[in-house]
């Protein structure tokens, strides 16, 4: 480990609230250790701002272990920064160099309005899942867990879809601000498992309908979402969603329960 310090120029989007206009503000970050995580670098900047009596930069974060999906940030043109397969909280300053200018923007999407500075409202994701992202079973009264054998390959594939952390990097990366990688991962988890079959066709319709109602864009298969997804959700999920949706709409009798 070779810890060194560096000085950086940050160009950060500042916006007081949802209604006011935002702008870029340039802040010098001095003496930043290469061992810091990106968010720790912002902590240091915030401590300095606070000491000067200036409003610290608001950004979403929580677990700082790369799993809660709360951190975001569009760093130098890429969601979660230049390293692939990692969240912003797991990005370290050694990925940058002394004297570099770092431009930090919030996720940009009509469905993700900016709340303040770099924090956006991602409740659209919650509403999509509320529309049908579940298996309708009540607590209790379920069969023994081993009553339902699931082939390991299927279980593993479902896990690959279920691993989505709901951060929204797919939307941020997509030039169309499309949420299809997220929505399809959720639909896929249940489509792949036997537990999800009873509501498979109504679920696909309900979740796609809500996704469209939230104002996300369409998929043009640029694969930017897949490239930027911190947990490696694959594009094949989108194909599966398309398949299930068309199947439901054109051939199945199940409809959406509102």
């Amino acid at each position: 480990m070779s810890e060194t310090t560096m000085n950086l120029t940050l160009k950060i989007w500042r916006q007081k609230n949802q209604n006011e206009k935002g702008r870029f503000v340039t802040i010098e970050a001095k003496g930043i250790s290469t061992d810091m995580s990106f968010l720790e670098m912002l902590d240091v900047v915030n401590e300095d701002l606070t000491r000067k009596g200036e409003d610290p930069i608001y950004f979403d974060h929580d677990c700082r272990e790369g799993i809660c999906g709360m951190c975001s940030l569009y760093i130098n043109g890429q969601p979660h920064g230049p390293k692939h397969g990692t969240t912003t909280c797991q990005l370290h300053m050694r990925s940058f160099h002394d004297g570099q200018t770092i431009v930090i923007e919030p996720w940009r999407a009509a469905a993700f309005p900016v709340l303040k500075d770099l924090a956006v409202d991602r409740t659209a994701f919650d509403r999509i899942q509320q529309a049908g992202g579940y298996v309708s079973v009540n607590t209790g009264g379920v069969p023994d867990a081993n009553c339902l054998p699931i082939p390991k390959v299927k279980a593993d594939e479902a896990f690959e879809s279920a691993t989505c952390i709901g951060c929204g990097a797919c939307v941020a990366a997509c030039k169309n601000a499309s949420a299809m990688l997220f929505v399809s991962a959720k639909i896929s988890q249940y489509a792949l498992l036997p537990q999800g079959q009873a509501e498979r066709w109504s679920r696909a319709q309900a979740m796609v309908e809500q996704m469209d109602a939230e104002g996300f864009g369409a998929c043009t298969v640029t694969k930017a979402c897949e490239a930027e997804c911190p947990v490696g959700i694959k594009l094949t999920n989108i194909a599966r969603m398309n398949r299930d949706y068309f199947n439901a709409k054109f051939f199945k009798e199940e409809t959406v329960h509102h």
Partner: peptide, 12 residues
């Protein structure tokens, strides 16, 4: 039992 019924993808 409950978690499996909900579709939690446990290792198999």
């Amino acid at each position: 039992d409950q978690c499996v019924a909900q579709g939690v993808p446990f290792a198999r």
